[in-house]
Computed example of a mutant assay.
Amino acid sequence: MMSGRPFSLAVALLCAAMVVPAQAATIEITMENLEISPAEISAKVGDSIVWINKDVFAHTATAKTGDFDVTLPPKKSAISVLKKAGTIDYYCRYHPNMKATLKVEP
């Protein structure tokens, strides 16, 4: 049986090896046929959003809060990283009927 300092060191190393850092997720949001899909989605601060425009005309992902404003040319994509928590309603400036909600957790 180990005692004292070597035992404490072994326990500390074992605990450190068991700690796994959380990885940020990558979430895809698609704009196609004048719709945003999914219309509601949850994510976490630090996650990346891949905005994909599958239409033949430009779209935007414009947050009503001003948190982001991504312009997507036809058949292109863009990536943004979520920086703060909250519920964000967003829309396409070119097609205001295209609306969605992104819930960002801490």
Rank of each mutant, 00 (worst) to 15 (best):
N97W: 00
G86A: 07
T87S: 04
I27E: 13
S37N: 15
V56F: 02
E32C: 05
E28R: 15
S48P: 00
I29D: 06
V81S: 10
W51T: 03
Y94F: 10
D55W: 01
P73R: 11
P21N: 08
P38W: 05
A58W: 01
K83Y: 13
K54E: 14
I41P: 03
S48Q: 01
I29V: 12
M98V: 13
P38I: 04
V20D: 04
I52T: 10
S80C: 03
T26I: 09
I27C: 07
T30K: 11
I88L: 13
T87H: 08
G46C: 02
I41R: 06
K83V: 06
M31R: 05
T87F: 02
H59N: 11
V70C: 04
V56G: 05
T26C: 07
L34S: 05
A22R: 03
D47P: 03
H59E: 03
Q23K: 14
A85K: 09
W51C: 02
P21K: 07
A61S: 04
T65V: 09
N33L: 03
K44V: 02
P74Q: 12
T62W: 08
D69L: 07
P74H: 10
A22M: 03
S42N: 14
C15G: 11
A85C: 07
A100K: 10
N33V: 01
Y91Q: 15
E40D: 07
L34V: 04
D67K: 12
K99A: 15
G86R: 00
F57R: 02
S80L: 06
V19M: 13
P73N: 10
K84L: 05
K84G: 00
A24W: 07
A16C: 14
V50T: 15
T65R: 08
I41G: 11
D89E: 11
V81H: 09
D69C: 02
P96L: 12
A16K: 15
A43L: 03
G66D: 10
I49G: 05
Y91M: 10
P38K: 08
V50D: 10
P96K: 11
P96M: 09
H95E: 09
A78H: 15
K84E: 10
T62Y: 05
T65D: 15
D47K: 00
I52H: 11
V45H: 09
C92E: 06
T71V: 09
Q23S: 15
F57L: 09
T65H: 10
K64F: 15
A100R: 13
T30P: 02
A22G: 14
G86I: 02
A78G: 03
I79L: 08
T30Q: 06
A43F: 00
A16V: 14
V81P: 03
Y94W: 09
R93L: 07
T30C: 08
T71C: 03
P21T: 07
A39Y: 12
A100H: 15
P74Y: 03
Y90H: 07
T26V: 13
D67S: 04
D69I: 02
I49M: 10
K64Y: 14
D89H: 12
V19N: 14
T65N: 14
S42I: 11
K75H: 06
E35C: 06
A85F: 00
Y91E: 15
L14D: 05
G46E: 03
A85T: 06
V70D: 07
S48C: 02
S42T: 14
G46P: 04
S77E: 09
T60S: 11
Y91L: 09
A61K: 04
T71I: 11
L14E: 02
